Simulated scan of single mutants.
Amino acid sequence: MSTLTRIGRTFRRTAIQAVPTVLGIVVLNFFLLQLAPGDAADVMAGEAGSATVETMAALRQRFGLDNPLLVQLFNYLYNLAHFSLGFSPRYGMPVADLIGQRLPGTLLLMAVALTIAIALGLVLGSLMAVFSGRLPDRLLSVVSLLFYSIPGFWIGLMLIVLFSVKLGWLPSGGSGTIGSNLTGLAGLWDKVRYMILPALSLALFYVAIYARLTRAAMLEVQSQDYVRTAAAKGLSPTVITIRHVLRNALIPITTMAGMHVGGMLGGAVVVETVYSWPGLGRLAFEAVMGRDFTVLLGILLLSSLLVIVANATVDLLHAWLDPRIGVR
């Protein structure tokens, strides 16, 4: 079977499995959010300072909040069937447009954080495996344990204190210098400066996981017969480590990376709030505080789709890393 045929079958299988999964997620999230007290009309009235009974009734009627629960669910599913995520009462604009404004920031933050986490995790894990049982292995294990144990928001605050307040090297929040209108390399560097601290805060927790996984996987692979055969052929230790040991050790790393996409979306809520980063995580927090459940449902739906796409990508990557793994 050709590679293109196997890839096509994988996409078809993923699409068939994704439809009932996403539908179940949407329905479950819809009913769970209804358990929260209040709605968007209550929050908008509270922010205005006063509201009459007639005003509250008019708001709920305008946004369909006075309909029975099943009617609201049917209307939402009807909108989804017509590729619409609904309308946000709080922001006064379509949810798809609102998410489209915030999505690039979150995807960029997650991509940079995941790249940092995997790169540092592979480096630290490889060193731990090479020096297994010796002092470097023990020191790096302690560092990894610290990264894993410390809460992400505390790491974010300490990075701000160190690099923004004390040293003044990096900005403490935002996504770019306001009113700078920088272009070219200057504009790129300005974006990078604002990206470093949020990406590090999101990545350090996962660095510890990937480092421990890399260490365990490499130690297991080193005991395999084909590694001993490669050494008997006279290959250098560096070539053996990169071509044979590390490549096969990447399989559990990529598996966990696909699973962590959803976790990173959850962690982005805290990181984006701490650093005032304009992304989906901060939008989700604002939607919860404003009881804007239509926006929150759209974010949850998009998050589930991202996780499904990430898992499908991991399946294809496994087939490339190890030809013995067939994509059925």
Rank of each mutant, 00 (worst) to 15 (best):
A119R: 01
S175R: 07
L235G: 00
L114I: 10
F205T: 11
R282Y: 13
G156W: 04
D315V: 10
R228D: 13
L69V: 13
K233W: 12
V53E: 15
M259G: 13
L28V: 15
R12E: 07
H318T: 05
D322Y: 11
E272P: 06
V261C: 08
L305Q: 01
S180W: 11
V19I: 15
R247N: 00
T3D: 12
G234F: 09
R60C: 07
L59P: 01
L162V: 15
L103C: 01
L109A: 06
P104L: 05
I240A: 07
G184K: 08
T294A: 10
E272D: 06
V270T: 14
A113S: 15
N29Y: 06
Y148K: 04
F11V: 15
V143F: 14
A319N: 07
D292P: 03
I16D: 08
P68S: 10
F131V: 03
L122S: 06
V130S: 05
V165M: 13
W169S: 08
L200T: 13
L70T: 14
V112H: 06
S149C: 10
L139Y: 07
N75M: 06
V288T: 11
A319Y: 07
A45M: 14
E220N: 06
L246V: 00
W154H: 02
F163R: 04
I325R: 05
G121D: 05
T273G: 06
T55Y: 14
A231W: 08
V143Y: 05
T214C: 14
T5H: 14
G105F: 09
M289N: 11
L306R: 07
G179D: 10
V165L: 14
R324Y: 10
T52Y: 11
I196V: 15
V112Q: 04
S126K: 01
D39T: 08
A312M: 15
A57K: 13
F87K: 03
L140P: 09
N311F: 12
V112G: 07
G38M: 08
D39N: 15
D190M: 11
G8V: 05
F163H: 08
V307N: 00
L305K: 05
G152W: 02
S50I: 08
S84P: 00
D97C: 06
G279H: 09
V307A: 00
G168V: 10
L146H: 00
N248K: 02
T115L: 14
T214K: 12
G184D: 04
L140S: 08
V161D: 09
T183G: 08
T238V: 14
R12Y: 13
L109H: 07
V112K: 05
A203T: 04
A203V: 04
